[in-house]
Structure formats: structure tokens, C-alpha cells
Write a protein that binds this DNA or RNA. Sequence first.
DNA 1: GCGAAAAAATGACCGTGGTCAGTAAGAAAT
DNA 2: ATTTCTTACTGACCACGGTCATTTTTTCGC
Lengths: 198, 198
Amino acid sequence: MVRAVQKRTLQTRARLVEVAQALVARDGYAALRVEDVVAGAGVAKGTFFAHFRDKEALMERLISAELAARLARAGAGPVPDGVDAMIAALEPYHGFLASERYVFDIALRYSGAAQVAEVGPMAQTFEDCVTLVAGWIARSGGFRRDVPPDLLAEGVQAFAIQSLSLQFCALHQAEAGPARMRRYLVAWLLPPGPALPG
Amino acid sequence: MVRAVQKRTLQTRARLVEVAQALVARDGYAALRVEDVVAGAGVAKGTFFAHFRDKEALMERLISAELAARLARAGAGPVPDGVDAMIAALEPYHGFLASERYVFDIALRYSGAAQVAEVGPMAQTFEDCVTLVAGWIARSGGFRRDVPPDLLAEGVQAFAIQSLSLQFCALHQAEAGPARMRRYLVAWLLPPGPALPG
DNA sequence: GCGAAAAAATGACCGTGGTCAGTAAGAAAT
DNA sequence: ATTTCTTACTGACCACGGTCATTTTTTCGC
């Protein structure tokens, strides 16, 4: 016999999330302490872990929610008709991933489902992003047609991650994220040009 | 007046690394505890942190050493002349990255230099890999020539990371790593085929 | 050799994520 | 109402990475 979830449960969880969001807004994601969250919510430490597997599970929830919101706004806009328009359309989404090293790390770690038969919110959001981009590619006219749109979209994600990785890295900081991304996408998404000399 | 490094220093550091490697060989990377390392080496905990900034600095050293060794073996072999040969040549390198989730995470986090004007061993190894692949592409005949080889090589790295990410993920486990990698590289490295129907 | 200065090593201590046996609160059964 | 069963909550406790004032060892000028 499975009972309905108690009202109290939902209240407690909501309060934990609320407090966490406020703390993140003030100090950023990396600075979040579980002890501060429970203190702010007025519950014991153990309660936190009754609601979230671990600290990162809360992080996944917070970060994927923000990503999903930004992705939804991108999806509501017009279909981008070229590489530059696509980069611009995805900028808020990628900008958030680039905002904090910790955010990028968590996003990457949870971008795949954590366990068999369980697709977390982060994995869902990443998949939604691929689906959105694939739709753009299929509908727009300017992209190469010898590769299926969803494979191209997966590549866009791969290049985005590569660009962001290098953005966090001193070695290649000379070239900004969007500029690097542009070089990748021109080569990946457009019909090929003539062979280079040499 | 800057003094030479003491013999003792090198001995202690070598012993720490040695013990750590033995523990990793037995229990894997994720299970390594600093306290076990110092106990095995017969030194105090503080000594460890006099030799390594933190636990991950040791991890970077261990993991990048293994990666570099595998990369060197790949570089000693013949130049691969196509997508399948390239995947096969890089398999030991990628296989190690896929061997443990923790290894993959550390490798990614340190694949870029940590600080300005300091290129860590992991970043160096990743760069060496790109250089090696770029050389293969430039020397071999079968790849597209409308994009410079080093950009193509960076793309190979991006697709490898994408494939490995998805390998750790339940959602896409249906398709094995090398098979997925192959689809990406055919689209990325080869001259384009005719447009798909539809 | 000897004394001073630098380098290396020590271990008690701290912060923080995470656990778990025990308790309280809520929802059914009587 | 009272008992029973389930779910939610508690907080002392542990694990483990990391710090730092202090002590030991080494090096170097004399």
C-alpha cells in the first residue's frame, strides 16, 4: 500500500530549494554549504539528505532548472538561419554554463543519466537542447544535408563543450569562446568550401 | 640565494607516488585516500600537502602519466589512413579515459592549464594528442582538405569527449563508444557525400 | 666543527559532506 | 480515543581533505 506524499514533505523540500536559490544568488554555486541551507530552512542536517541523495543532487536540480529556462527562451525565438545566428541564439544557454567552473563541471557530470532507467533533469535538458538544434538545422536552409540533423546537433553540443572547456583554460584564452565556436561550426555545419592551398 | 632541492625531498615524493600507484593498481583511482598514501609512505599527512597542492594534483600526475604513456605508444605506430584506423590507434588512450568515471572527470578538469603561465602535465598531454592527430591528418591522404588539420584534430578531441560522456550515460548506452565515434568522425573528417534523401 | 638560516616534516586541529539509530508526527485501523 | 503502522525529522557522530604553528633535519658561511 503506497501512501500519498505528505504536504509537510513538499513544504520542507520547497523551503530547502528556496533557501538554496537565495544563497546561490548571493554567493554563487560553488560557495553553497549544506549546513547553511538547513540552517536557513530551519531543519536538521539529516533532513536535507532525506530529500536529496547528496549535495550534488540539489545542484543538478538548481542548475538544470536554470539551463532549461534559458533553453526555453531560445526555443521561443525565431529559427536561426546560419552559424552566427545559432551561436547568438544559444548564447544565454552557453553563457550560463561558462559563468562558473563549478556549474560547468556539474552540468557535464550529469549531462548523461546517472543510472539505468533514470533520466535526470540535467540529462533531459541536454537532450532537449540537441532536439531543438536538430529542429533548427532541419528547418533552416543553409546547412549541409549529407549528415542527419540530429547527428549535426550532437556535434554542436560536442563543440560547445570543447569551446567552454578551453575558455576555462589559460592556454587558449587568447581566442574567446564564441569566436572559437564559430570556427568549429563553420567547418561542421556548412557545406564544405574548396580545398585549402598547400 | 636559492638552494638546490634536497635528496630527501625527491625520495619522499617518489615514495608517495609509488605508494599511490600501488594503491590505485589495487583499488582504482576513485578509492584512493590521502591517509592511506601517507600511512603507506610512512610520513605525516601534512607532508603530503607539502609535495602536492591537493589530492587532485597527485591524481593529475598519475593519470596524465598513464595517458602520456599510451599516447606515446600510439605515436610510435604507423600513421592511420582512415577513420577506423584512427579510432583503433587511439583506442588505448580513449580506453583509459573510459576506464573509470573519476579518471574521465579529472582528465577533463585538468585538460586545460589551471593557471596563467602554467601548463600542467594533463594539459600538455591533451595538446600532444591534438598535435599527433593533426600530423596524422596532414600526412594521410584520405581526409578532407578544406579545413586545417589542427582544427580537425581539435574536433576529433571534442567528439572523443562527447562519445566518452555518452558512454558513461545510461541513456545512450545502446550504442558503444567506438561505434558512436565512428559516426562522428566519418561526418567530420571525410569529404562530404551526396545529400541525403528527404 | 659550530651556529644561523632555510627547508622539510609533524600531528593536532578544522570544515564540511554524509550516516544512522532514535524520536516525533501524521495517517489509517480498531 | 487508542493503538498501530508509516513517514518525516533529529542531531550526535564519522570520514576525509586540507591547514598551520611547531619541531626536526639539512645546508652553508665562518
